[in-house]
């Protein structure tokens, strides 16, 4: 199972086959014939605005169930799972980072990073909190601050990165993680994120317009007009 694989140090491979996502009005939003991402790979997704990059990332995360096709993480096909099962898969196996951080302003950095403990089984909560605290420490964020509202963009995104990794997921999916950051903060975040993921053999998939982010990945996937048009080296 994905979680067991993740805990033992192996991220499951991701494979998309004949995936089709349509808008409610029937318009095609995304078409993917075949796309494979290996365990522990760092993959960038780039393309023009509106090309379908975020939709592709949401399909990979199970936030959107495609009308057709298969989205397999190892043996698990997200396209066949209902919403509750996809939620369960996501909380066990995936970590998400968003463009504008999406932190809970009312929670402390540690409260944000360890938010998954709130719905985790009681036995796993101390472990998640301890890992979140360790990640914040490693990323240079003071965990005990009262809230995150006074934090800089870079600090916020580092809290978000700690949150994505706190449950020790098999893969981290990031949507424009550096879009709101200055160059130095962006470089630091990407460096830290890739280092942490590689240490544990985790897969990283990042949608980005940022050439430096894309360059830091193992390979890049090009998306245009709702279709994957190329998948090659970064």
């Amino acid at each position: 199972m994905p979680l067991d694989a993740a805990r033992s140090g192996f991220a499951p491979p991701l494979s998309l086959r004949d995936v089709a996502v349509d808008a409610p009005d029937g318009r095609a939003l995304l078409r993917v014939g075949a796309l494979d991402i290996g365990p522990g790979e760092a993959v960038g997704i780039r393309g023009p605005s509106g090309a379908g990059k975020t939709t592709l990332l949401h399909v990979m995360a199970g936030l959107i169930r495609p009308a057709r096709g298969a989205v397999r993480w190892g043996d698990t096909d997200l396209a066949t799972l209902d919403e509750a099962a996809r939620d369960a898969f996501r909380r066990r196996s995936l970590g998400l980072i968003f463009q504008d951080f999406l932190l809970f302003e009312e929670l402390s950095p540690l409260g944000n990073a360890a938010v998954a403990a709130a719905w985790a089984p009681a036995a796993e909560r101390p472990e998640i909190r301890a890992r979140a605290a360790g990640l914040l420490d490693r990323l240079g964020v003071p965990p005990g601050a009262r809230g995150v509202s006074g934090f800089s963009g870079g600090e916020r995104q580092r809290v978000a990165a700690a949150r994505a990794l706190a449950a020790d997921p098999a893969a981290v999916l990031a949507d424009e993680p550096t879009a709101s950051l200055d160059r130095a903060s962006a470089d630091r975040l990407v460096g830290d994120l890739l280092a942490l993921a590689r240490e544990r053999g985790r897969t990283v998939i990042a949608v980005s317009h940022d050439a430096a982010v894309i360059a830091a990945m193992d390979r890049v996937i090009e998306v245009a007009d709702g279709a994957v048009v190329a998948a090659g080296a970064a």
Binding site: D87, R90, R92, L102, A116, R163
Partner: peptide, 8 residues
């Protein structure tokens, strides 16, 4: 966000 992070 909670749902995206996997909250039931």
């Amino acid at each position: 966000l909670l749902r995206a992070l996997g909250a039931p």
